[in-house]
Simulated scan of single mutants.
Amino acid sequence: MSRSVRAGLGGVWVRGPVPVGGAVLAPNHHSWWDGYVLREAALWAGSDFAVLMGARQLSRFPFLRRVGAVRVDEVRAGVKRARVGWLVVFPEGAVQPAGPLRAMQPGAAWIAGAAGVPLVPVALRVVMRGAQAPEAFVRFGWPVAGPDLNDALHRELAALDADLLDSDPETPPAGYLRAVPGRASRSERVDLPSRLLSWITGDRG
């Protein structure tokens, strides 16, 4: 999974209060990459990682249990995992078309309450910008109560979209840290020898 992220994406960038210890993360779900990206962010943050998955998806990819996948009906296991690390619960359920949030289910809030851990809204986008490969951006919000999750996630997603819209497409938005390096664009690889040559010849521009 780590190799897939580093080879397939231009990097993973994060912003906001990164959870420490047990937490239920409630992100939007608009990309195939979402679970992979959040696992890499958890590794970067030094947190255990688990994610709720539908029974059909997990039966197709049973090896994902080895990296933290928990079937959606294994509620007790989910509560236990949330107490020791990040448990990702997608309130929208299955992957949805990119854009605004779809109807959200109450499972993330219920598990956070049962586990006694923070419920964290997380905005997530995997987008094509100025690089050759898509880039992943994760914006963590402050913990919220269950009834406030819908509004909080809408706010974080709108803020992330605004950050991307207002930034230079060839540089990360202000305030985002690179958690995971990724695939360099061909233009960056081609430009490196020319920069080295300029340094050797003393032509610094």
Rank of each mutant, 00 (worst) to 15 (best):
S2M: 04
G10N: 07
V14P: 14
V14S: 08
G16M: 07
A23W: 01
V24D: 07
N28L: 06
N28F: 03
H30R: 13
W32R: 15
W33K: 06
D34H: 13
L38W: 00
L38M: 09
A41P: 04
A41S: 07
L43D: 08
S47Y: 11
L52V: 11
G54H: 13
A55K: 09
R56V: 04
L64W: 02
V67N: 01
V72W: 07
R83T: 05
V88T: 08
V95Y: 01
P97F: 07
L101K: 08
Q105P: 00
G107F: 11
A108G: 07
W110Q: 14
G113H: 02
G113C: 10
A114G: 05
A114I: 09
V117R: 03
V127L: 01
G130D: 06
A131D: 08
F137T: 06
R139I: 05
F140D: 04
F140I: 08
D148I: 00
L149P: 14
N150V: 13
A158R: 12
A159F: 05
L160R: 09
P173Y: 01
L177F: 06
V180L: 08
V180W: 09
P181L: 10
S187I: 11
R189W: 03
V190R: 12
R195G: 02
L197A: 11
W199D: 04
I200A: 13
D203Y: 06
R204D: 05
